[in-house]
């Protein structure tokens, strides 16, 4: 039980608002204000441009692909890390969550050093005509690297909460490991999987640091929406940048509120 102070709250609340205003609230408002400056038609015209269309579609596709691969990979990682005991489990657990702490640019650099044309593996692939970097594959790779911890940390607590007897009950009734996973464990993970996928999707959609390293920022080929915003800003094309920024912000808000509702209702259930 946390004891909330009653008494008069207006002073500290006002102070907090004063701090948050320039920090969070005003910047968000600014996006929409600038986006709306050209009027609705200007906004729509910008979004109809082929560059914008490509960047938005490309970003959504990459985010979708990342979320789908992560769904399998992250669940598998979480399952192995919770249900098996082996030497080095602690180490592996730390390793899986390490990307959260790594600067994104460093993530991009490390991938380039491995898969790039002069990289450790990339050097061998180059003569075969395979170039994973500066291509959608490389971007998905970078996004997986960055988002895996979010997936694992959404699924792991749910898995840990499932008592061993849950699986054992299925075994005694005649279900093998795979059937148990499919019919008993997976359905119980539904909530965790959904919020993990949403988190992955949202992070992938907004990823910038690693993406700019591995994508090459090629127009109509590897330019994601955040990269487009950056490129337009640099070129002084502020209105185009703003329109896309406003759209990205809106998508993020929607995802965020869905997530909030989801975790809120789960907490109420528990």
């Amino acid at each position: 039980m946390n004891h909330r102070r009653k008494g008069s709250a207006w002073l500290p609340v006002t102070l907090l608002l004063v701090v948050l205003l320039p920090l969070i609230i005003m910047p968000i408002v600014a996006i929409f204000v600038f986006a709306a400056r050209g009027g609705v038609s200007g906004f729509l015209n910008t979004l109809a441009e082929p560059d914008v269309q490509f960047a938005l579609r490309f970003s959504l596709l990459i985010a979708l692909a990342t979320a789908l691969v992560n769904l399998v990979l992250g669940t598998f990682a979480a399952y192995v890390l919770t249900k098996y005991s082996f030497r080095g489990r602690e180490m592996l657990t730390i390793l899986v969550s390490l990307p959260v702490a790594m600067p994104r640019v460093v993530v991009g650099t490390s991938l380039l050093l491995l898969w790039g044309p002069i990289g450790l593996i990339g050097r061998a692939l180059d003569p075969l005509g395979l170039q994973p970097m500066f291509a959608p594959f490389g971007i998905v790779l970078a996004h997986l690297f960055v988002t895996l911890p979010y997936m694992v940390s959404s699924v792991r607590p749910v898995l840990e909460e499932l008592e061993d007897t849950y699986e054992e009950a299925a075994y005694t009734m005649g279900a093998g490991r795979w059937k148990t996973f499919l019919h008993v464990i997976l359905p119980a993970l539904k909530g965790g999987l959904f919020s993990g996928s949403l988190l992955t999707f949202a992070h992938s959609l907004g990823e910038f640091g690693a993406t700019i390293m591995v994508s090459g920022n090629l127009r109509l080929r590897t330019q994601t929406a955040p990269l487009y915003i950056f490129a337009q800003f640099e070129a002084g094309n502020i209105e185009a940048a703003n329109a896309v920024a406003a759209l990205l912000a809106t998508i993020s808000f929607v995802l965020f509120f869905v997530l909030l509702r989801l975790t809120g209702s789960r907490r109420r259930l528990a």
Binding site: E163, T165, A169, A175, P187
Partner: peptide, 30 residues
């Protein structure tokens, strides 16, 4: 033999009912 091949029924102390399944589905699982 693994538990799957022993044909035993086990009632656990914490029941271990499958929480996403209805009572009927729990009973029908085996």
């Amino acid at each position: 033999l693994p538990p799957q091949q022993r044909d035993v029924g086990f009632v656990f102390q914490n029941y271990a009912l499958f929480r996403h399944m209805t009572v009927a589905d729990n009973v029908e699982f085996g």
